[in-house]
Amino acid sequence: MHQFTVEAIGPALKIGAYDISFTNSALWMVITLLLIWVFMLGGMKRELVPGRWQAAVEGLTGFVQSMVDVNIGPKGKRFTPYIFSLFTFILVANLLGLMPLAIIPGLHSFTATSHFSVTGVLAIMSFSIVLIVGFWKHGLKFFSLFIPHGTPLGMIPLIAPIEFISFMVRPFSLGLRLFVAMIAGHILMEVFGSFIVSGFNAGPMGWGISVLSFLFIVGVAALELLVCAIQAYVFALLTSLYLNDAINLH
């Protein structure tokens, strides 16, 4: 569990009664930001015939843009920057947390997205934007979201509360899904890592267990890389779907 511990770096900073000290969590978020910035800088050459780096950047932006276009439509164009920021931030933060930096003594990476204080803020941010856009565009008509098209009149008292509950659960599912996926993968790898060590310490009988655990951890690591990308994609996709609800209603 030590890998999830947040430790302050440098002097304590305070705003009023709130402690906002720079921490390892903040450090890795800043590194995430820098990596994204460096990556995007490679796409700013704006050549007619793109090089490899520029093509990669354009591939990423095109991927996010097509996701927004498909799920929201032409009205969603203004939300592409937000979806793009969400996707890249979560993706890079996830992947950074999986880097085997602990090989260098004294260094170990930190997964900012394994803290619900981070994923929760992201989820609440997405949810708030959905609410603001919904009420801004449709006013009180936004509540018609809770009555799907073609609901029989008698069913409305039954359907509307269910729709309302499923709507209110969105920020929790959004934030918890990412947090749980990250923490579960890291704990799984930690458990099998400790199996390798204790297997070796247990003598010849345990070596077989160590080898098996090692093979397993290789597979889990590959799976985790996939999960990093999928979770970032799911977060961005769901946010764009919720935005679609707010912009186009049903």
Binding site: Y18, D19, I20, S25, A26, V30, A112, H115, V121
Partner: peptide, 8 residues
Amino acid sequence: YASQIFWL
């Protein structure tokens, strides 16, 4: 929590 939210 304050530091996490602020830096995020």
